[in-house]
């Protein structure tokens, strides 16, 4: 179940060596790499970005390689499947469609896959080093209205509670053989989901009382621990972005076949 993957990612985001750094630093670093992966030519930029992002996560934030690969597995599966689809062409003549492979389609598949790999590595850099709530706190800079951010913060909290309920509920059903065949499994899944919603809404109502006892005014304002922005980290990130861009431009100009 996705709960295990989420638990792992969330845990890493909360406990990695960079988790106490200002979110803006890591957003700058990861977001910059993500942007570069989209706008620079995949060769040679994508491998460089992949390398930089993976190094930041594994060496900088000290995330374990095993966990990193486990999290990367799902996107890799999507990429492999997508690569096959892109590499194969459909030839619609001669009545029945034929599948063919061309150098063009292989080149597209390779470029797209490489670029996506670099982009995913950049996304993982953000996902694995910035806790979700710290990211949501930054959302007001994007002029997201406060109530939406508050709903998102609460939703994160409820999501964590809901996953626990779902995992334990499913376990309880499995204890009573609720998943022995497809028919019973559909019934059990439905029961589980139907039980979850009222429980969550109930939780919401009790939370309402909990907040009211703390003189809630309707808004959910909170204060985060004060963290300072590190100019060194920021300039390092910018330097990294600039050098990847510079190498790419140099490559494209110097290697004729790249154009």
């Amino acid at each position: 179940m996705a709960a295990a993957a989420m638990d792992l990612i969330d845990r890493i985001a909360q406990t990695n060596r960079w988790s106490r750094r200002h979110p803006a630093e890591k957003l700058m670093l990861g977001g910059g790499l993500l942007l570069l992966s989209l706008i620079l030519p995949a060769i040679p930029a994508a491998p460089l970005i992949l390398l930089a992002a993976a190094a930041a996560v594994l060496v900088g934030a000290r995330v374990s390689g095993r966990d990193y690969l486990a999290i990367l597995a799902a996107p890799l599966a999507f990429l492999a499947l997508g690569a096959v689809v892109l590499a194969v062409s459909v030839q619609p003549d001669a009545g029945a469609p034929w599948l063919t492979v061309s150098t063009d389609s292989i080149a597209t598949a390779a470029t797209v896959t490489l670029r996506a790999l670099a982009a995913v590595a950049s996304l993982l850099l953000i996902v694995l080093t910035v806790p979700l709530t710290a990211l949501l706190r930054q959302a007001h800079r994007l002029r997201v209205p406060a109530p939406i951010i508050e709903i998102a913060v609460m939703m994160y909290r409820f999501t964590m509670l809901a996953f626990g309920m779902a995992v334990r509920g499913r376990q309880a059903q499995a204890n009573r053989l609720g998943y022995r065949n497809l028919r019973r499994a559909i019934h059990s899944s439905g029961l589980l989901a139907a039980t979850l919603l009222p429980r969550l809404l109930d939780r919401g109502r009790r939370m309402e009382i909990g907040l009211a006892t703390r003189a809630c005014t309707g808004e959910l304002r909170t204060l985060a621990p004060a963290v300072t922005l590190s100019p060194a980290f920021l300039s390092g990130a910018v330097a990294l972005h600039a050098s990847i861009a510079a190498v790419t431009v140099a490559w494209v100009t110097l290697v004729p076949s790249a154009a």
Binding site: T159, A193, L196, L200
Partner: peptide, 14 residues
């Protein structure tokens, strides 16, 4: 707000 957040969490879990 609270009910929306709970509903959102429900959709996510679903």
């Amino acid at each position: 707000k609270m009910l929306l957040a709970a509903s959102g969490a429900f959709c996510f879990v679903l």
